[in-house]
């Protein structure tokens, strides 16, 4: 494929792709499926920071988080045509993919001793967001709604939901960790996620 010389800035994180800002995710994916590298760069600019932050929150290790995100966006480049935008929101698919791969890495790591640079995921929770990272308006609304929903949950419910989501533990593992009966954990997990779903659905934030 021939590359125009203006493509020299491609890959520069400081450079945004002109003309792509108005395209929604589905339109970018259609272009990516057609081999448009700038569309991939634009999609990365839009979602890369959150994808990285999610992987970092799960793994606590910036290097592995970087590999996970690289891998996910590489898959998007290779399989963009296979994604059906009408079936679900792209970000749902994207963050599910980031989470699954990060948790795979986490499970693989259990077999070996922790590395010195790996931060305990809990310590990440207190970390403030970097103000330099741009926040999309729609993401802002969703972020606010999720935080509000979590605030309404009893602490015990919020805790099991976060252990399941960020650690990828089964309800059995959560029960062992908390020293609670399995049935209690199952029902807390269910109540927590149902509440979150209803909260977001009421606000028109689910597709």
């Amino acid at each position: 494929m021939d590359q125009p010389s203006a493509d020299r800035t491609l890959g520069d994180p400081a450079v945004r792709e002109p003309g792509y800002a108005d395209l929604d995710d589905a339109a970018l994916l259609a272009r990516i499926a057609g081999g448009d590298e700038h569309a991939l760069a634009a999609l990365y600019d839009r979602h890369g920071a959150r994808a990285f932050s999610l992987a970092l929150r799960i793994l606590g290790d910036p290097e592995t988080a970087e590999e996970v995100v690289l891998d996910v966006f590489w898959s998007i480049w290779q399989h963009a045509g296979a994604f059906m935008p009408e079936r679900s929101r792209f970000t749902t698919w994207l963050y599910a993919m980031v989470r699954n791969r990060a948790i795979d890495q986490l499970r693989r790591r259990r077999a070996r001793p922790p590395q010195a640079h790996e931060i305990e995921p809990e310590s990440m929770e207190a970390a403030a967001a970097d103000p330099a990272v741009e926040v999309l308006a729609e993401a802002e609304e969703l972020t606010r709604a999720v935080r509000e929903a979590l605030d309404t949950l009893p602490e015990a419910q919020r805790q099991v939901l976060e252990l399941a989501y960020f650690r990828g533990w089964s309800h059995q593992e959560i029960a062992e960790y908390l020293g609670e009966p399995l049935g209690t954990v199952k029902s807390r997990l269910h109540l927590a996620l149902r509440k979150l779903r209803d909260w977001l659905a009421e606000r028109g934030l689910l597709s």
Binding site: G11, R50, V133, A201
Partner: peptide, 23 residues
């Protein structure tokens, strides 16, 4: 979809600049 929304509670951290370059 609701579970995935938990991704939005994570504090945003900038990815290393080389990540985009590598991609």
């Amino acid at each position: 979809e609701a579970a995935t929304a938990l991704a939005y509670t994570v504090p945003l951290q900038p990815p290393p600049p080389r990540l985009k370059a590598r991609l």
